[in-house]
Design a protein around this nucleic acid. Structure first.
Lengths: 215, 215
DNA sequence: ACCTGAACACCGTTCAAGT
DNA sequence: ACCTGAACACCGTTCAAGT
């Protein structure tokens, strides 16, 4: 409780001024409100009010609303990477693609607004958040590694990169369409079933299941 | 010019009041501004000002900003469908998937903000725009038809629907990631090359290489 | 160093009132 | 019927001023 020893004037406790670590308080409040109202309507004023601080206070910790949102997005990329990583670690080789896709898709479904923020235009022009570019690159590198591992391709080769691109497109396409409700999903279809269906579709389009075979 | 014959009072021309078809004027102005400022910052006030009309005027033609945006999105879905349709019509069987993907991707790249609007959360809650649901359904149906045609699947069958899902995911995933700049695209790579690369990646992931790619 | 109050230039939306 | 003016309740952002 006795936080600062160097308090040389006044009473020890000052409950009127909000003390330190306002940045994390802001971030936490924003994260909580994000899933309530969505990325577009998340206002700096509202999150400031939520933690009982003036609207201007945030500007001592973040450059702008976009910057705050950028930090949130970076958090998201880190969590997404972890989720995929964990799942990929305990997956049987051969089913790695499916497991990674499942983990990716579940993360998006469980944090729809955060996911929208990560891949949406909301915090464009930020990029200042050092963590963002890193976290994003790390996510992509991870996908690449998972894909390369399962397909037995030389990591870094052209094939591995094309495959990683495809994997990323698959995960994001499905997640994005689902979250935005643009899919005409048959009712009663679980998340896992939807992923399997998409994988099945790709197998039909690109596989040996009778598409291209001249046989 | 002499629009109304029943003008029984006053002078025939009234250049001070903005006359009729304000709805299409609004829509056109919004469409133009959309690609300038993006869906998030497209304000009803600004488009009203652009055509020299009061901010409140728009509410006699649209329920809300979301509704205006919904109409714009519907326009987009119709244009997208046309673009894919045209391309698909003049494509050699076997390369239909690639041609459709190219058309889809190009439309998105040429109208990035419109595309973002169509698949973004900006006009959620609208749905009132009758044209929207229709236009969207029509787009999806078209993709389904194209896919089914090329893969030789029974239209309406489970396989055809899975394949259509995959096709949709492919197109949207690639377009969305590209437009949002989340892709680490090697410089100098053209749109077409990017599409081919993704197709190649899918071919690697899901089976035989070289389904419909070039050589 | 950290936060507040007040202001500025914007929003979407409503509603009485004008023509 | 169609449009305006003025108002309400919001925004993001800045900046002098307080502690």
């Amino acid at each position: 409780m006795k936080t600062v020893a160097k308090a040389k004037t006044r009473t020890v406790d000052r409950p009127t001024y909000h003390v330190g670590h306002l940045d994390t308080l802001l971030l936490d409040a924003a994260r909580a409100m994000l899933e309530e109202v969505g990325p577009a309507k998340l206002s700096l004023r509202a999150v400031s009010a939520r933690i009982g601080v003036s609207p201007a206070a945030a500007y001592h910790h973040f450059d702008s609303r976009a910057s705050l949102l950028g930090h949130l997005a970076a958090q998201g990329f880190r969590e997404l990477a972890v989720a995929v990583e964990e799942r990929a670690a305990t997956a049987a080789p051969g089913s790695l693609l499916r497991e990674a896709a499942l983990a990716y898709f579940r993360f998006a479904c469980r944090n729809p607004c955060l996911y929208q923020l990560m891949f949406g235009p909301e915090f464009i022009g930020d990029e200042s958040a050092v963590g963002l570019a890193d976290a994003r690159t790390r996510s992509f590198t991870l996908v690449q590694a998972v894909i390369a591992k399962d397909s037995g391709l030389e990591p870094g080769s052209g094939g591995a990169r094309s495959a990683a691109l495809a994997g990323w497109v698959l995960g994001h396409g499905l997640a994005s369409l689902t979250i935005q409700g643009r899919l005409e999903r048959p009712e009663g279809l679980t998340d896992d079933q939807l992923v399997d269906r998409a994988l099945q579709g790709f197998a039909i389009l690109f596989g040996s299941s009778g598409v291209s075979g001249p046989a």
